[in-house]
């Protein structure tokens, strides 16, 4: 275990940045993912198939295309990007926030999928029971649906986080590869493989990436098990 001291400051920066981008992307997209998953699981409206297709788009499009679309929409002169810059002074282009946006968008379909499945597994009659007791829809969601779907919410969040850590194509297209700003672990690895004699470091960084991904899975397994103990006897 003596590879830790061999990490260069650049590599540590990349790891730090990746984690920050991963958490930001996951936390910011989670509420939207839950909302969309709920609408898809429980809703019954004309445009449902279309919404489902749009949500899945980042999964099927080449990441580079997603990155390009983000650049066109959220760039300084893009319609959304310009609006956000003028009114809220938020910039995405070539910033770590842009990397987080790209990571969030790429992980979105995965999160929605996992959360939607877990919401669909909640018996709608429990929600009906809550409604007949006088609970308004938001209370039903937060007190009944969400707690029962919690393991799926967690699984979705972990998937989204893992995806955010590994995102490369859309990120590099949208926000380039700027050290300390948008150079995440995958970007760092890519750069190292392009540098003569960088193979060794590339392998070390890959190991770090693998450790982070596995760590996230282990933590989520642990949390899911605790949740299961809390709702023991759920199915009986």
């Amino acid at each position: 275990m003596d590879f830790l001291p061999t990490l260069t400051p650049e590599q540590l920066t990349a790891i730090n940045l990746s984690l920050r981008i991963g958490f930001t992307a996951t936390l910011c997209s989670l509420p939207f993912a839950v909302l969309v998953a709920f609408v898809l699981a429980r809703g019954n409206f004309p445009g449902k198939t279309l919404l489902d297709a749009v949500v899945h788009l980042p999964l099927v499009l080449p990441p580079v295309v997603t990155g390009l679309l983000l650049l066109l929409l959220f760039g300084r002169r893009g319609p959304i990007g310009a609006f956000l810059y003028e009114h809220f002074n938020i910039t995405f282009a070539f910033r770590w926030t842009g990397a987080a946006l790209a990571a969030g968008v790429m992980g979105f379909p995965l999160m929605v999928r996992a959360i939607r499945l877990s919401i669909e597994a909640v018996d709608p009659r429990l929600e009906q029971a809550a409604a007949t007791l006088g609970a308004p829809p938001l209370a039903v969601f937060f007190l009944v649906t969400a707690p029962l779907a919690a393991p799926g919410l967690l699984a979705g969040a972990v998937l989204g986080f893992a995806k955010a850590l590994g995102e490369f194509g859309a990120t590099i297209t949208f926000v380039s590869n700027i050290p300390g700003e948008t150079r995440t672990i995958p970007a760092e690895i890519y750069l190292l493989t392009q540098t003569p004699g960088g193979d060794q470091d590339a392998i070390v960084m890959s190991a770090v990436a693998a450790a982070l991904a596995i760590g996230a899975l282990v933590v989520s397994e642990f949390l899911a098990k605790r949740m299961k103990i809390e709702t023991r006897g759920l199915s009986s």
Partner: peptide, 8 residues
């Protein structure tokens, strides 16, 4: 019929 208690 089957009570539908909140399991959590």
């Amino acid at each position: 019929q089957d009570a539908q208690l909140f399991p959590h």
